[in-house]
């Protein structure tokens, strides 16, 4: 579009929200996409054989999907100008409890559904606690979910300590993972359909649903409105507190989906699954153009942000970088991405 004066924000860009994906593609998210393509191309050249192998690409796709689903989850909260730091713990706890349900169910097919239901229900409970305290007691989301980060992870260890697998070992002292996940579950969660890994397919479904909810439902519209101006939204006759409450519920319940995928990935209900994922998820959202001030952000942006996070992690592995410097490099990527975004914004504003 013709912008005569680059110092002035165009009304279209200013209004960039999920309904405007095509226009968005031409602006903010295009930069993220180009960065992804460059990273992809570089790795394809540097480590062609390993990077372009079906195995690695499937692995990359899965990693991106875990990050993206968590990023989409937290998008619901960030849009209202809140944040959920407990998402990694929530994913871990949901996965652990879900794994217990899978193992406890005799029929492995039924176990898939029982496990999913129990996992997601656990997410709903965690989200309800977060949401109730943030929305009704009016405590800052940062501190509530920071506390929940600890509570969730601690809960896994407490449960694990007293957990006794059916028809298995006698009571013991140290917490252990939920073992004995049926192969059926692992095959489904780690399987491929037409060569596409199941986590990627799950992401596609979650993304489409989330996009529709954010763009075409009253709930979604109100999330953005609250992030834009909470007081004006309330005065317009909207139960702002309930909308915020459900944002946290949706967030944690969506995290449970990643938690259940982790159960398949590790073939167990792991004690440490999801550890530190809040970093990846929130970074994905912010790299994808979500404003932590609320009121803006899109599902497509989050997915692109997750692609960056995923390919950087994968590339560093392939380049043989040990895990400690890897963490530092990923941290640096986040800061650089934030700087680039601010500079871009400054040029536009």
């Amino acid at each position: 579009m013709a912008t005569a004066d680059p110092s002035v924000p165009s009304p279209l860009l200013e209004n960039a929200r999920p309904g405007f994906h095509m226009r968005l593609l031409r602006s903010r998210e295009s930069g993220v996409f180009i960065a992804f393509v460059i990273l992809f191309g570089t790795l394809a050249i540097l480590r062609n054989r390993t990077f372009m192998s079906t195995e690695n690409l499937a692995n990359l796709g899965s990693t991106i999907s875990y990050f993206a689903i968590l990023g989409i989850a937290v998008l619901f909260v960030i849009v209202t100008s809140g944040v959920d730091l407990s998402l990694g713990s929530a994913a871990g706890l949901c996965g652990y409890v879900g794994a217990m349900a899978i193992v406890a169910t005799p029929n492995p097919i039924a176990g898939i559904f029982v496990g999913l239901a129990v996992g997601i229900l656990t997410g709903v409970v965690i989200g309800a606690i977060n949401g109730a305290i943030v929305a009704f007691v009016n405590v800052t989301s940062f501190i509530v979910t920071l506390g929940m980060l600890g509570i969730g992870r601690g809960a896994i260890y407490i449960i694990a300590k007293y957990y006794v697998a059916p028809h298995a070992s006698p009571p013991r002292d140290s917490p252990i993972a939920v073992l004995g996940i049926p192969q059926t579950y692992v095959d489904v969660a780690q399987g491929r359909v037409l060569g596409i890994p199941v986590p990627v397919l799950v992401l596609v479904v979650v993304a489409l649903l989330a996009h529709c909810v954010l763009t075409y439902t009253v709930f979604g519209r109100r999330l953005y409105a609250i992030g834009g101006n909470e007081e004006a939204t309330k005065l317009s006759g909207i139960h702002v507190n309930w909308v915020k409450f459900f944002a946290y519920v949706v967030c944690s319940a969506t995290c449970a989906i990643t938690g259940m995928l982790y159960v398949g990935r590790y073939s167990q209900g792991s004690l440490v699954a999801g550890n530190g994922d809040e970093l990846n998820a929130i970074a994905a959202a912010v790299i994808g153009g979500t404003s932590l001030m609320g009121g803006s952000g899109s599902v497509l942006g989050v997915i692109l942000g997750a692609c960056i996070m995923g390919i950087v992690a994968n590339g560093l592995d392939l380049l043989g970088i040990p895990s400690e410097p890897k963490l530092a490099i990923i941290g640096a990527v986040i800061v650089v991405a934030a700087i680039v975004d601010v500079v871009r914004n400054r040029r536009r504003a």
Binding site: R222, N229, T233, I238
Partner: peptide, 23 residues
């Protein structure tokens, strides 16, 4: 401060009070 969602459009601001009626 109390009337408008400044980063939203004319359309979205106009219908803020009647979300149930535009479904």
């Amino acid at each position: 401060k109390f009337g408008l969602i400044l980063n939203m459009s004319v359309r979205e601001n106009t219908t803020m009070t009647i979300h149930r009626q535009i479904l």
